[in-house]
Structure formats: structure tokens, C-alpha cells
Design a protein around this nucleic acid. Structure first.
Length: 138
DNA sequence: GCCAACGTTGGC
DNA sequence: GCCAACGTTGGC
């Protein structure tokens, strides 16, 4: 199967990119939205994932990879919710702000822009590549 | 099954 | 702090 590309959101106050890098691996649990859950379920080991920080930072911070595909969310009291494990791959030298993403014509269709409340979303190959490219240039 | 009320997310 | 955009809940 073709590798898929994703973006996950995280509040930096609860789990910052720096903490993720320090930990070297993280269980992505606690997702309680069906659409986001379905995206988690579709993740395969090795898929690339952009890490987006909400709140004050509102920026894509770096690239991660799926280390373990979906398994039952240990924090869920009801069955049916899943978690994945992610590991950080590399930071983006210049975190890509939401403003920059919104200003880029090739990124206007991303779920990040169009569905601002979704916390786990797929990205098209060109979208993923463009964000990474922006992250490498000031 | 509809829809009003309510709660949450997250940008501004 | 506000509010738009949604998702969820519960009464009917």
C-alpha cells in the first residue's frame, strides 16, 4: 500500500514538540472525535506525520512517523477508540505558521485550513511536501 | 428523525 | 475574552 501522509494537532501546553523529541516516542491517545479516530485507524507504520502545535504557536513544528498502527486506546472508558504511537523524525528549521499556510495558494484546500477543529487529518503528497519546503526556508 | 440547546475547539 | 464552526445530546 502507498504510504499515507498526515497532520496531527497538539496543544503545546499539554505536549510540546520539544517534549516529544525528548521522549523519542509518544502514544497518541485521547482522541474522541469519530473523524479523527477514523484517520488514526487508517495510519500505517512508517507513514509520515506533521506535528502541528495549536494555541500560541499555531505552527507545524516537525515531522514524525507512525511507529505503531492503531490499537485500543488505553485511556478510553468505552470501546472503539484507538491510539497510535508516533516518533519524532526531524524538526522543521522554520516552523510553518498557520498564517503562512493560509497565505499559500497550494495549501488553501488543506483540512487544517478548511476544518480548523479536526485534530487528525490526511494531507495530499503535494501539501505535505509544500509545508516541509516552507519549513526549510525562512 | 428532527432540531434546539449546549459544549468544545481553536483562531482571532 | 469573544465567537464561529461544529459535534453531541436529549426532548419530542
Amino acid at each position: 500500500m502507498k504510504t499515507q501522509l498526515w497532520l496531527v494537532k497538539q496543544e503545546p501546553e499539554s505536549y510540546a514538540w520539544e517534549a516529544f523529541v525528548r521522549d523519542g516516542r509518544a502514544t497518541w491517545d485521547g482522541v474522541r472525535n469519530y473523524q479523527a479516530r477514523n484517520h488514526l485507524k487508517a495510519m500505517a507504520r512508517g507513514d509520515r506525520v506533521l506535528f502541528y502545535a495549536t494555541g500560541d504557536s499555531k505552527s507545524v513544528m516537525g515531522i514524525a512517523a507512525v511507529a505503531r498502527a492503531a490499537f485500543p486506546d488505553p485511556t478510553a472508558e468505552e470501546p472503539g477508540w484507538v491510539a497510535v504511537e508516533l516518533r519524532p523524525l526531524e524538526p522543521l528549521p522554520h516552523p510553518v505558521t498557520l498564517a503562512r499556510i493560509k497565505a499559500d495558494p497550494s495549501l488553501r484546500q488543506t483540512a487544517l485550513v478548511r476544518h480548523s477543529r479536526l485534530s487528525v487529518m490526511p494531507l495530499a503528497e503535494a501539501e505535505f511536501a509544500r509545508i516541509v519546503e516552507l519549513g526549510r526556508e525562512p
